[in-house]
């Protein structure tokens, strides 16, 4: 198990390097630092000196990938790529356009982000699995049919509609919770409850439908027939036998959903004015702050790799056949 984890973490290094190369290629090869300086400073009146100054302040005045003038290792290290990406591996993300330290900003914003993402994820998984099991229990009945129809309808509705509709109805018309904002401490739940609720509801359609097919596929397996031959009731078959076997595909699907979770929280946080990583990213995108976007890509990749690893480990809990080596 430990060897497996270490190996996976080692394997993460080339992947993160690849991630950095891609963002680097996007940011510096498609557009030269000069282009970016011009854009940041306003396209019209830019003197070459201003560009040079802008580049020097941000460390973009070095060669991109290889520094032919330097000797030894410095050929590689005295470059924009190394300076910008290698430091991210040790948690140094540099400074944003407004001069603030990105790493500290990320640290501050991690809390609110997790406060939305985790409850949404867990509650969402619970609700969809329950709903899916119910549909599977009443399979091939009218209830099942209309449940599936409802799911398809729900997944055909834009996520933006859930947010805008929910905000309008619950906050504006009924005035149950504040429309947006965030408060520290215990008061935070008043701000969190709506985004979490909306996050869960918007995921019900696709989640339920997917898990239902997982369960229905499990139900056709031989071991279910054996359980029936033992005289076990349908409910016990679903909860004891099918649910546990269905956990593997469910876990896999959940990991696939993690990048989606990230995307969901982007939108959610900016709509609800929650000072998390998502709104940070959106602001960075809108103000075209490359340093932040680059850091967020890196963080996102790290999160994804960690999530993958966690899934692999959780497999061993739900399925005794899986041994990590």
């Amino acid at each position: 198990m430990l060897a497996y984890i270490v190996r996976r973490l080692l394997y993460a290094l080339p992947i993160l390097l690849g991630v950095n190369l891609i963002t680097f290629a996007l940011f510096f090869v498609v557009n030269t630092p000069d282009d970016m300086a011009r854009m940041q400073l306003g396209v019209k009146r830019v003197t070459p000196e201003a560009i040079q100054k802008w580049k020097a302040e941000r460390g973009y005045d070095k060669p991109l990938l290889l520094n032919a003038e330097a000797g030894g290792l410095a050929v590689l290290t005295e470059t924009v790529f190394f300076q910008k990406s290698a430091r991210m591996f040790v948690g140094d993300f540099g400074r944003a356009e407004d001069g603030r330290d990105i790493a500290r900003e990320i640290g501050n914003r991690m809390g609110p982000s997790l406060a939305i993402a985790l409850p949404t994820f867990i509650l969402g998984l619970f609700v969809t699995v329950t709903f899916a099991l119910t549909l599977a229990f009443f399979r091939a009945s009218a209830f099942d049919f209309w449940g599936v129809v409802l799911c398809v309808a729900m997944m055909s509705i834009s996520g933006l509609f859930y947010i805008i509709g929910g905000q309008y109805l619950i906050s504006k018309v009924w005035r149950l919770v504040p429309i947006s904002g965030y408060g520290g401490g215990l008061e935070a739940w008043r701000f969190l409850i709506l985004p979490v609720l909306i996050g869960v509801v918007s995921g019900i359609g696709s989640g339920t439908r997917w898990y239902r097919t997982v369960f229905l596929e499990e139900i056709t397996k031989d071991y279910v027939r054996t359980a029936r031959a033992k005289g076990v009731s349908e409910a016990a078959i679903l909860f004891r036998h099918v649910l546990k076997n269905g956990m593997t595909p469910i876990l896999t699907q959940s990991v696939v959903a993690i990048p989606g979770l990230f995307m969901g929280s982007l939108i959610m946080e900016s709509f609800f004015g929650i000072p998390g990583l998502g709104s940070y990213t959106i602001e960075a995108i809108q103000s075209q702050d490359f340093a932040i976007v680059r850091s967020m890509v890196f963080i996102g990749a790290v999160l994804y790799i960690v999530a993958l690893l966690l899934t692999d480990i959780s497999y061993t809990i739900v399925d005794p056949r899986i041994r990590l080596r």
């Binding site: 963002t23 557009n31 854009m39 396209v43 990048p259 990230f262 995307m263 890509v297």
Partner: peptide, 22 residues
């Protein structure tokens, strides 16, 4: 895959915007 889709799209679109603008 490990780059969150939105971010990759965001980065790419931003860059493309620069290309188009210049």
């Amino acid at each position: 895959n490990s780059i969150p889709g939105v971010l990759l799209i965001a980065a790419a679109v931003l860059m493309m915007q620069v290309v188009i603008d210049t």
